[in-house]
Amino acid sequence: MPDARPASLMLRQAQHEDYDPHMSAEQPLLQVEDLSVGFATEEGRITVVEDVSFTVAAGRTVGLVGESGCGKSVTAMSIMRLQPSPPSHIDGGRILFEGTDLLALPESAMRGVRGDRIGMIFQEPMTSLNPTLSIGFQIGEVLRLHRGMTGAAAREKSIEILRLVGVGAVERRVDQYPHQLSGGLRQRVMIAMALVCNPRLLIADEPTTALDVTIQAQILELLRRLQRELGMAILLITHDLGIVAEFCDEVVVMYAGRVVERSGVRPLFASPRHPYTAGLLAAMPRLTKRGGRLVTIPGMVPPPAARGAGCSFADRCPRVLPRCRAERPPLVPHAPGHDAACWNPPP
């Protein structure tokens, strides 16, 4: 694969001795391997992400789905190494990005990855921008940091990227402050900021959850267009399977801190191999109409401290067997490229 990155960038990275982007053709862009993350709480250590593995190929879109609290954000933040530690600690695993284990990088090299090779946007567009700094400054800051651009050049490029993400009246907007922008516009600014250095991977943590439905559609359409134009891969975190169906190539379903199912979008929707996924799918039509949360499966996710030896879904599962409570089902292939962790998968 020809490397389309600007020469200046490669030069910069060559300066980081620990950073070695020796990507081979078949190697995925991002490879999360057996990631486990815990927290030190007042009640002791809890594990909230356990043995999570998945890959994101260059230029593809992978959906990370699951009910709120199942560990999606912690996983995403761990990839960026943005989890504050303490209280969080990574208990094991590797996160290979362009062949480099991010978890082994020194912090200074990791800073070179953030905002440059991996961009990230968040659920809360209203609060994710600094209220005291202008839009232009906040975008320009990324360029000053990673590209050494200054003054007019950074401003020029900021205006260009704002245009690209569909912000109108850019010349005026660039000097405005976040409070002067609507939620949808702020999320566009966040996207501009995340993409201004042309990262290979964009992590979008529920980017549309806080927006109303028409704006949601616009932002997703924008992400789709930008992906086509810029060619980055997207790790899209959502609890909305409607968005996954429309937007993603592959899906990783998480439940209670673990991956319970992993496959291409079509096979997953055609024949889910995990009762949890099946439950989510059954709840879907009602969901897309209201745009609400995934609450239609009866019962609650067990809190981290209450997760026993068996399958965490057992208490809510219609297909539960005695074995399920005794032994944890491993994540194994049920069909080519379709993995699930279940002793008694739906037919």
């Binding site: 200074s108 800073r111 953030r114 961009g119 990230m120 968040f122 994710s128 921008l129 800051e141 940091l145």
Partner: peptide
């Protein structure tokens, strides 16, 4: 958090 995600020290 956003500032950290940008790569600021």
């Amino acid at each position: 958090r956003t500032a950290r995600a940008k790569g600021l020290s």
